[in-house]
Design a protein around this nucleic acid. Sequence first.
DNA 1: TTGCCTTATTTCGCAACCGTAACGGTGATG
DNA 2: CATCACCGTTACGGTTGCGAAATAAGGCAA
Lengths: 116, 116
Amino acid sequence: MQNKNTSQAALKLWKQALCELVGRQGPDLSSRQMAIMLTVYLEQPPHTVRGLAAQLQISKPAVTRALDTLSKMELLKRKPDEADRRSINVIRTVKGSVYLSEIADIIEQAAWKNLT
Amino acid sequence: MQNKNTSQAALKLWKQALCELVGRQGPDLSSRQMAIMLTVYLEQPPHTVRGLAAQLQISKPAVTRALDTLSKMELLKRKPDEADRRSINVIRTVKGSVYLSEIADIIEQAAWKNLT
DNA sequence: TTGCCTTATTTCGCAACCGTAACGGTGATG
DNA sequence: CATCACCGTTACGGTTGCGAAATAAGGCAA
């Protein structure tokens, strides 16, 4: 077990960011949906359904459903792969980029509060 | 908008911790449930249904349902208030403490990865 | 005691999500 | 061509969550 104060600070950071997210209006994403968003926007493309399912250790239908929801919100988009037409690529949108930058701000603010 | 590298680091921290949580078996808590857990364990007691609802800006029945789920998992417990028997206090459990310390470890490890 | 306020819970109808399994379309191999 | 493997989606049955409204029970004051 690690230093207690460090653990406490880590949890407080998480709590403040999370509470802000819970309390705000707008898209209320589940953990899985958020994890998919972050993977698509932070990792190198291409992102396929199968790849996302493997990386997050969830089932493929779960990924499909999450993509349905997220693309309805215009936070990301499906783009059929021209080379292998069985596959689709999941790509970013402007709206998604804006959304994630807001999340980043919230986390940064929470971090600032916990370091001072 | 703040420094781009800082934002990116904040999101990567969030992503790594979240992906670890999503990928693990065991309790799969929603954002609200997690927010309640963190509030109960990090803020000063007492914690009532009304108080939690106000603090997280969600409805009282939503809190009641979250407490049902969380107490079934033994991550926290209801304890009727002796003084005012309309109220209940939400209190901690050993299992909940252990669970949160695991979360803390995950966040710390993610933070370590992003600082090196 | 009566009436009213507060607290938490339950009920209702509805929507979202889950995993398993089956399905249709595409590529690859003979 | 025929077959087989692969990819994403859909169908299905079940679980869980939601908000609004109604309910149950305790406190409080006239």
